[in-house]
């Protein structure tokens, strides 16, 4: 079975500086493998080990996502090899653009049975890319996947949905977005990090991929800091804190 793990190399928005005009300075932010994506790596590795399969990592984005550190961070998480599409034409790319490039790369990798992804990325956090990717590939796309196993010529997929747990049998290629707590990802050890240096990496040129032009163009007309609805920020401490809080809430009519 050939499994692709699509992961994002992204900064934590907590470390992004928002200027008064609502533009963002990423100067201080250190990107990393997006918080929940290691869950997808782990699910992929276990599925591959159970089926004698291969795990191919895949990430797309601006040129800065392809550094020796970024390669090692991904390759030490149980990948067999890595495919990267890094091009500054993808700076600020929206979910559909990222998904169309990912789809072209998945087709390029060829004979892929499953694409596994994280729940949502740390910076954008919309959980949209995997499902739009499924749309581009013309495959079934399922989010909230808590478990996946090979069985009966296909996969048994367990989903954790608000209404309950749903178990499915899936034959045919599929994109699966894991829940944040599907499995506990293993921590890369020294051996994994050393082995990472020897694993193959393929940098695909964006121009060489069959990526159709977008049908819809976006223009940012204005940016702003969200209005926080100014909070009072009264911080209470010491033995009278609880009584002070109750009094303040009563005064504000807040209870």
């Amino acid at each position: 079975m050939k499994i692709v793990v699509a992961y994002k190399w992204a900064p934590n928005p907590q470390d992004l500086e928002v200027r008064p005009d609502g533009t963002v300075d990423a100067g201080r932010a250190k990107p990393a493998v997006s918080e929940y994506d290691p869950v997808a790596f782990e699910l992929a590795r276990r599925l591959a080990d159970a089926t004698g399969g291969e795990v191919v990592g895949l990430t797309v984005g601006p040129a800065a996502i392809d550094t020796p550190l970024a390669r090692k961070a991904a390759l030490s998480r149980g990948l067999d090899r890595l495919v990267v599409v890094a091009d500054d034409a993808l700076v600020g790319a929206d979910s559909t653009r990222l998904a169309v490039v990912l789809a072209a790369a998945v087709r390029g990798i060829g004979d892929v049975d499953v694409v596994l992804t994280g729940d949502s990325s740390i910076d954008v956090a919309e959980g949209q890319v995997p499902l739009t990717l499924a749309g581009h590939l013309g495959w079934l796309g399922l989010a909230r996947v808590a478990a996946v196993e090979a069985a009966d010529g296909g996969l048994v997929v367990e989903r954790d949905l608000p209404a309950g747990v749903s178990v499915l049998h899936v034959a045919g290629p599929v994109v699966l977005a894991a829940t944040a707590d599907a499995v506990v990802p293993r921590v890369a050890g020294m051996k994994d990090i050393l082995a990472a240096a020897k694993k193959p990496v393929e940098a695909l040129a964006l121009a060489a991929l069959d990526v159709p032009a977008p049908g819809t163009a976006l223009t940012t007309l204005a940016t702003a800091r969200p209005s926080q609805g100014e909070r009072r920020r009264v911080v209470l401490e010491g033995p009278t804190a609880v009584a002070d809080l109750v009094a303040a809430l009563d005064l504000a009519g807040a209870r």
């Binding site: 998904a99 169309v100 739009t132 749309g135 796309g141």
Partner: peptide, 23 residues
């Protein structure tokens, strides 16, 4: 914004070449 709705929107967005805007 549910996962199922995003799957339907994702297929539409892919077909139209249009991004899905959220929030």
């Amino acid at each position: 914004t549910s996962p199922a709705a995003r799957a339907l929107l994702g297929a539409v967005a892919a077909r139209l070449g249009a991004p899905v805007l959220s929030n």
